Computed example of a mutant assay.
Amino acid sequence: MEQFEAFLAAHLPSAASFHPHYETSLHQMLLGGGKRFRPALLLGVVQAYNTLLVPSAYHAALAIELLHTYSLIHDDLPAMDNADLRRGMPTLHKMYNEVSAILAGDALNTYAFEVLSNAPFSDKVIVKLVRSLAHNGGVEGMVLGQAIDCHFENQRLELEQVKMLHIHKTGKLIAASLQMGAYIVGRDDLAQQLYDFGIDLGLLFQIQDDILDVTQDETQAGKTTNNDEAKNSFVTLLGYERAMDEANALAEKVTRQMMSFDENLQRELSPTLTQYINRHKD
Score class of each variant (00 low, 15 high):
260 S>M: 10
21 H>R: 07
270 S>C: 03
269 L>D: 00
37 F>Y: 15
177 S>Q: 04
275 Q>N: 12
161 Q>N: 11
31 L>E: 11
80 M>H: 11
253 K>H: 11
118 N>C: 12
257 Q>F: 08
124 K>Q: 13
17 S>H: 08
160 E>K: 15
153 E>I: 08
167 I>W: 02
65 E>Q: 15
13 P>V: 01
193 Q>A: 11
65 E>S: 12
30 L>Q: 03
154 N>T: 08
104 A>L: 03
16 A>Y: 06
23 E>Y: 02
64 I>K: 00
46 V>S: 00
69 T>F: 08
71 S>K: 06
150 C>P: 01
207 I>F: 02
185 V>H: 01
202 G>K: 01
133 L>T: 03
257 Q>M: 13
131 R>T: 08
96 Y>S: 00
241 E>S: 14
96 Y>H: 14
156 R>V: 10
112 A>G: 14
204 L>V: 13
216 Q>R: 14
231 K>N: 11
68 H>A: 08
261 F>S: 03
200 D>P: 04
138 G>D: 04
239 G>Y: 03
130 V>A: 11
72 L>I: 06
263 E>G: 06
49 Y>M: 13
101 A>P: 04
251 A>T: 06
106 D>E: 11
81 D>Q: 07
211 I>N: 00
57 A>G: 04
61 A>P: 00
186 G>M: 13
119 A>D: 13
250 L>V: 06
187 R>K: 15
13 P>W: 01
50 N>S: 14
125 V>T: 15
11 H>K: 08
153 E>W: 03
160 E>C: 12
173 L>S: 04
30 L>E: 07
280 H>M: 11
173 L>Q: 05
221 A>K: 09
83 A>V: 03
148 I>V: 15
33 G>C: 09
250 L>K: 11
98 E>A: 13
157 L>P: 00
79 A>T: 15
234 F>S: 05
106 D>R: 10
159 L>E: 13
241 E>V: 10
265 L>P: 00
13 P>K: 00
39 P>A: 14
114 E>S: 13
272 T>C: 11
33 G>K: 10
118 N>K: 15
61 A>C: 07
169 K>H: 14
4 F>A: 03
143 V>Q: 09
261 F>K: 03
158 E>S: 15
190 L>S: 03
122 S>R: 08
214 V>L: 09
3 Q>V: 05
11 H>D: 03
159 L>R: 13
9 A>V: 07
137 G>E: 01
62 L>K: 05
208 Q>C: 11
81 D>K: 04
78 P>K: 14
195 Y>A: 07
238 L>W: 05
76 D>M: 10
131 R>Y: 06
151 H>R: 09
148 I>W: 10
281 K>C: 04
116 L>F: 05
230 A>E: 09
42 L>Y: 02
26 L>C: 08
106 D>Q: 13
33 G>L: 09
143 V>F: 07
128 K>A: 10
175 A>F: 02
73 I>Q: 01
265 L>G: 03
228 D>G: 05
227 N>P: 01
106 D>A: 10
